[in-house]
Nucleic acid binder design. Structure first.
Lengths: 215, 215, 215, 215
DNA sequence: GATGAATGAGTATTCATTCAT
DNA sequence: GATGAATGAATACTCATTCAT
């Protein structure tokens, strides 16, 4: 239920123009796509879970693929907005004095984002290898824009002497993979036990900072 | 062709008992599964690419899912064998004096493994979230066995004072995610350009070692 | 555009009671039915081309078949009116001295009619074999009435000794099929080239007259 | 039953390679297509009447349209073969001394052909306006080949002075439309009554010959 | 009167699986 | 062992029709 409500809010926020039925369909689709994958999900199952007739799906989304797009497009558009505007710009506007402040802010920000959009992101990650339009959209939005913004931040801290002088894409790679590693561990692999979130975040930040410190 | 031959060797090596037709089917299935995903691949397409009749597939593999299992099971079994026997044991047998030696050996070893089994691993990664038997097998083999062996190695170097004293699973996470980040960058994201492999490996090793150095 | 205007006039003439929307629907239906056939035409396509909502069609025409009927019924009623009243009566009223005069008048008259109602007649011809109500209506109107009037004319000229003394239905058959042959050639088969209309009409009239001349 | 047997023979004759199921499907399709038209016939109905599973249809004929083609293609190929070889060549080989002999032979020959292939030809006539591939095939086979052969015959008799000196296509039109008129009358319009076939044929031949006599 | 969202039965087609040869 | 014809349930999608607004 909580999950549903979060999704509802998400949907409601992004696209005010959606009718009630459209929302139901999108919510149902997100749930089932993330459970079984796009290809293994039948439109009849989506209809059933959404509580609408099968035809209703196709009145609003021309094809099944169109439904997938309608789900994923807003993430792509909305993943970057806060990223750039909030975090990265703050840095560029000298609001973060140190690399560590930036890192800490960004990590918690991104972790929050992943937590809220778990299902959506699962779908995105699963389907991107098989749909070139998704891949292209992704590259367009995330790849180009985020990368270029990120690059500026890295160069900034490199000039300040806070991080080692290696190519910016290597820095992105190290930060990115460690971040994703954290998220996987947090949500998928260690779902329950003696995982102390705050300590782990501290360790992760420390690992990155030390790893990127100028030698 | 090269790709095919490598797969052939792989198949031949692992399972001597396979008939010619069986090999053809497995090779075809690996190719198509990795291209379009398990759910979007039809058995008739596999039969066509393998050059056998549709019925033949079902003579050897009871169901389509059985075919998937037959493909993935050997990776699971064989991923760990060299891991433990070659690398890890060497460390435990004091064959690696320093953490860096171990890391360097392991990285190149694993990178090699990924390169050779790209398609297989793509299938594994794609399908694991949707098939609980796969997930369980994976946990059984990789999770438990590798983790426990790895743990010994980490404790060993922690006692030697070469790496920081944090929980072993955090260390695995850092090494693992950085390694996977390297592999993704190498194979998927940076397919062509000014990516100097040796330099990148050095940077990666350096990043991990510094990140894990005792403070 | 011209085609549309002609149809509009046609519609307007026949049924004054039609609202604007109704006319648009009928015009759209005629166009699409004649292009793709009744069965292959969807009501939503008609609605789109007519510029009305889907529901509007069903407000005016209970079912899709009802729409077909509404289109075809007036042709059936109006094909014969001028036929009988104008041509045939003229003959019976001794306005045509000779069979040839009658034939010439009727040919050009009918050719004109076909030209103006090409689409309608295409629909009629295409759909008659599959809808028994149409067939019955057709028989009722054209079959009985026209045949009986025509019969009178033929008997008249047979008595005058201008045409051979064979059963009237054979005469109708010869004239009818030759006329239809002319129309097909004119409109469908020879759409462009060295077809001299006036010469062809003369040849056609000459063929019928000689063919029906008393031996 | 009789109808079915004739069709069976037809099918068997043309395509020896057909399996039993394929024949059943084709026969069922011919029957239903000719009853209700291609667009209004569902593949499930064909399957039911043929006594096969719906999937079986698509194993043999990739699409519904492919099934239509498989039905119509052989008529197109086989309509002309006897036409040219038997009738027309006979004329060109001076086997018919007079236009009348040729005409009589051809009429009965064609009438026979129509009688045997009533359903097939109904489908052909109904569907040709809506399927351009059919139209093109038709033009290719019937249009070009038959027309050119026919032309030779007409020129031959025109030179002999037996028929009037008008363009050959007009002659084809007169003969063709009268022939078709006969066939329609025979099979469709006058299905039962006081229609004396032999007399009608004589009248028809007489009508054509007189109509085409040199003036 | 007009709309267009909603429906659910129906459509062509695909698919994993079976089985007689 | 291998084949491939046959199956029938399932699939994505369409359609004529209804009905609340």
């Amino acid at each position: 239920m909580t999950g549903q409500d979060e999704l509802l809010q998400y949907i409601a926020k992004q696209q005010h123009s959606l009718t009630e039925k459209q929302k139901q369909i999108i919510i149902a689709a997100i749930e089932i796509f993330s459970e079984k994958g796009y290809a293994s999900t039948s439109t009849s199952e989506i209809a059933k879970r959404a509580g609408v007739a099968e035809g209703t799906i196709f009145r609003h989304f021309k094809t099944k693929k169109d439904l997938l797009q309608s789900i994923i497009a807003p993430i792509l558009t909305n993943t970057i907005a806060p990223f750039i505007i909030d975090d990265l710009n703050k840095v560029l506007n000298q609001q973060f004095d140190h690399f560590e402040d930036f890192l800490r802010e960004m990590l918690s920000n991104r972790i929050e984002f992943f937590r809220e959009n778990k299902k959506l992101l699962k779908i995105l990650i699963q389907e991107i290898p098989f749909h070139h339009e998704l891949r292209e959209q992704f590259m367009e939005h995330i790849g180009k824009i985020v990368a270029s913004r990120f690059r500026a931040v890295i160069l900034y801290f490199q000039e300040k002497g806070e991080i080692i002088n290696i190519p910016y894409y290597s820095v992105i790679r190290f930060i990115g993979s460690t971040l994703i590693g954290y998220i996987f561990a947090d949500f998928l692999i260690v779902p329950d036990n003696k995982w102390n979130k705050e300590e782990e975040i501290e360790r992760t930040i420390s690992f990155i900072i030390k790893g990127l410190a100028p030698s």
